[in-house]
């Protein structure tokens, strides 16, 4: 039996339906990004309208960094819940009894987390850009749209989300407790963000090459993540609690 898109879709659709019926999940997904967007917008609105000042550059950098926190943090709790949560609910065994392969199960789960995460992150970034264009001073607005800022944000949003999702699912597949998995997952989502922060604040000298290298590294993790997590997905341990 080969990799089945239909089985992947069955898992993804089921997950999305489950989110839709779960107000807590929707509330958390909506609330966190709103929290993260208020501060950057305020930063822009109170920024001094002095062209090309280091302070303005820092403020814009900090604001953009906040925007990248959204795709890094929003999916981590959902991803961390994905396997261990089903296990605790008793719904994992009926799914694993079907012909589904671990890879299909994991990709289905990852897509279900990625779809709302990336949609929300792009929507928040759109709101941020609109606020910069409409309400910030022209100097601040130009600084936001200057260079490759927008492109970098658009590129790193799905890459960071992918990292957080796969790390979260990996932790979930090996964890036996939902809370521990979620806390670990949030922590594990931060390292790429730290590197970007160091670049934003020029601790690491930002360059196109460095940004590209980081993007490529994240891309490799994101595209191979399902294989790596599938390798540690131990059906027997998940069912019996004992290593297979």
């Amino acid at each position: 039996m080969s990799f089945s898109r239909r089985r992947v879709a069955a898992i993804t659709v089921k997950e999305l339906r489950d989110y839709r019926h779960n107000r807590f999940v929707i509330g958390t997904m909506a609330f966190l990004p709103l929290l993260f967007i208020i501060l950057p917008i305020v930063q822009l609105l109170i920024a001094p309208a002095v062209a090309a000042s280091p302070e303005l550059t820092d403020r814009v950098g900090l604001s953009l960094l906040y925007m990248l926190v959204i795709p890094a943090v929003v999916p981590s709790t959902l991803a961390a819940y994905s396997v261990v949560g089903e296990r605790e609910q008793g719904t994992l065994e009926p799914v694993l009894i079907t012909p589904i392969r671990p890879e299909e199960f994991l990709v289905g789960k990852a897509l279900a987390v990625a779809a709302p995460t990336i949609t929300i992150a792009y929507a928040m970034f759109g709101i941020f850009l609109a606020a910069a264009k409409l309400f910030a001073s022209p100097v601040v607005s130009s600084a936001v749209f200057a260079g490759s800022h927008v492109l970098v944000q658009l590129l790193f949003t799905p890459l960071l989300a992918g990292w957080s999702i796969w790390v979260g699912i990996a932790i979930s597949a090996r964890s036996s407790d939902i809370r521990a998995a979620q806390q670990l997952s949030i922590l594990a989502s931060l390292p790429p963000l730290a590197i970007i922060a160091l670049m934003q604040f020029k601790v690491i000298t930002p360059s196109t090459g460095l940004a590209l290298a980081l993007a490529v590294a994240l891309l490799i993790v994101d595209t191979l993540g399902w294989r790596a997590v599938a390798a540690i997905f131990d059906r027997e341990r998940l069912i019996t609690g004992t290593r297979g």
């Binding site: 089945s4 239909r6 089985r7 879709a9 069955a10 898992i11 659709v13 089921k14 339906r17 489950d18 019926h21 779960n22 609910q89 008793g90 719904t91 994992l92 065994e93 009926p94 799914v95 009894i97 079907t98 012909p99 589904i100």
Partner: peptide, 28 residues
């Protein structure tokens, strides 16, 4: 084959139809 475990293991927030649709997809 099919296995009905001791605990039904249904998705409680989903409807009966949605539960079965998911598994029909998993069995293709």
């Amino acid at each position: 084959i099919s296995i009905m475990p001791e605990s039904p293991g249904l998705y409680l927030r989903l409807t009966v139809m949605e539960n079965l649709q998911c598994f029909a997809g998993l069995y293709e």
